[in-house]
């Protein structure tokens, strides 16, 4: 694994280097590399640096979750997450996924936000590698004759009779 470029700054020091290393293991489990779709995993250096650099208000929630995961790894395998055997990790994560929903939500938003804006991933999804503005996108007009049966059905709104009126 390559070294991370900038981590402490991004999380204001809330996540230690060790916890970030654990986070990298976890995100790689969530979205691994795929040769079939020609996409990197979320633990790819560029993507993970984006992830680490994008941790903001959720740093405390992530720290809590990662601390707990490290504890579980110690109990189960007597080692840190980074050193656990890769075949053991999915089982550990499955137990943990249902335990701390807030952590899983924060982690999912963070990882998805960074992974799905990577050039290689967007290309694999068939997207142009650019922001929406200024070029925008094409949306077809569609077949307006679909409205014909609705027109044929006639008035739907409820009348308000004079006695129910009460103007100023």
């Amino acid at each position: 694994m390559t070294e991370l470029i900038s981590t402490d700054n991004a999380t204001n020091g809330i996540l230690s280097k060790d916890l970030l290393a654990g986070l990298r293991v976890v995100v790689g489990l969530m979205i691994p590399e795929s040769h079939e779709y020609q996409v990197p995993g979320a633990d790819d250096e560029k993507i993970f640096n984006d992830i680490a650099g994008s941790i903001g208000d959720e740093a405390e929630i992530l720290k809590r979750g990662l601390d707990n995961l490290e504890e579980l790894a110690q109990e189960a395998f007597n080692c840190r997450l980074v050193n656990a055997a890769s075949e053991d990790l999915p089982g550990l994560m499955a137990t943990f996924k249902s335990a701390d929903r807030e952590f899983i939500k924060a982690l999912t938003s963070l990882v998805a936000s960074c992974y799905y804006r990577d050039d290689r991933v967007m290309k694999s999804l068939g997207m142009e590698r650019r922001p929406p503005f200024p070029n925008g996108f094409e949306v077809e007009q569609g077949d307006w004759s679909l409205l014909d049966p609705v027109r044929a059905r006639g008035k739907l709104y409820r009348d308000v009779t004079a006695s129910e009126k009460n103007d100023t």
């Binding site: 489990l29 969530m30 979205i31 999912t108 998805a112 936000s113 992974y115 804006r117 967007m122």
Partner: peptide
Amino acid sequence: PVATAIAGMLSGRVAWG
């Protein structure tokens, strides 16, 4: 894609792994 992934993963329709 981000909103799709989040909804998919949190609802269990898109797996980890």
